[in-house]
């Protein structure tokens, strides 16, 4: 009962602020533009050598969102915690729900749900322009392909996990600005470099596949970066379910650290 009430309150907190849809709009614009660009390149409109063709090209276009857009669900998840610290609203939150575990559990569930919404959003943003361009240029859209629909479903799942991971980050760091810096620095800079560097030798590559972005690509089953690195053969290494477990494991560890530190602190 407490958990259900808490979920209702937490979702009301999210939807009474503009943050979520501003992030969603920015993500849709960013992903839509990038997916359209990929589609133009893969469709051969610009001439030259097509790096990917056929169903693989379509999958790379459709996974543009999960490749570049996952920082957005991470931030939405993180803000569920950092906004409370920033405005001191944990006091009324814990007054209404003294069970802190219930509050954290409710936030994790709301994070997963809003993450899934972001997953749908990024799919719409990549599939609509991507399929339109591929189709119009006579390339394969692969929309009848069951593998592609599995990719869609796993994209939604991956974004739900990313949002929970963000909740964990928010619980560990507490400060909104620090979380934004950490998320952007890691997802846009540090991890891409690490993935490339670690892929140089077989030994380091076996560590590289446990990076959250690599695990996410494995879960989704396609990723622009993985494809470029493996020459279009699709992500090597982890199976999709292994990638899912790695990503979920990272999220769980972060939430657990937050639960044992931040969530046990005095609120003053």
């Amino acid at each position: 009962m407490t958990l259900i009430r808490s979920i209702s309150a937490e979702s009301a907190k999210l939807f009474t602020l503009k943050t979520w849809w501003i992030l969603l709009l920015v993500m849709v614009g960013y992903v839509g533009f990038t997916a359209a660009l990929f589609a133009v390149i893969f469709s051969g409109l610009l001439g030259g050598v097509q790096p990917l063709e056929g169903a693989a090209a379509a999958q790379a276009v459709y996974s543009a969102g999960s490749t570049i857009g996952y920082a957005f669900p991470v931030l939405v998840g993180a803000f569920l915690v950092t906004a409370e610290f920033r405005h001191g609203t944990l006091t009324p939150t814990f007054l209404a729900t003294p069970s802190r575990g219930a509050v954290l559990g409710a936030k994790a569930i709301v994070a997963a749900l809003i993450g899934a919404v972001f997953g749908f959003g990024m799919l719409l943003a990549s599939v609509l322009p991507g399929a339109a361009i591929l189709g119009a240029t006579g390339n394969e859209t692969a929309l009848g392909d069951s593998d592609v629909w599995a990719l869609f479903a796993r994209t939604v799942l991956a974004m739900a996990i990313w949002a929970v991971l963000g909740l964990g980050l928010g619980s560990v760091f507490r400060n909104q600005v620090i979380v934004i810096v950490v998320v952007l620095a890691f997802t846009q800079f540090l991890e891409p470099i690490l993935r490339v560097v670690l892929s140089f030798t077989d030994v380091s590559a076996s560590f590289g596949q446990f990076l959250p972005g690599a695990a996410s690509d494995a879960l989704v089953g396609s990723g622009f970066m993985s494809m470029m690195m493996t020459g279009g053969a699709g992500p090597a290494g982890l199976d999709w379910w292994q990638g899912g477990l790695v990503l979920a494991g990272i999220a769980a560890v972060l939430v657990l650290i937050g639960a044992l530190t931040t969530w046990r602190r005095d609120v003053d």
């Binding site: 009430r5 309150a9 009301a12 009474t16 602020l17 405005h87 001191g88 609203t89 209404a96 729900t97």
Partner: peptide
């Protein structure tokens, strides 16, 4: 120090508390 999110209305703040309780 009981603070409120400045971007929420007073009614929204209370509605959230009402849901939680």
């Amino acid at each position: 120090a009981n603070s409120f999110h400045p971007s929420r209305s007073g009614r929204a703040h209370l509605a959230i508390q009402a849901k939680a309780a």
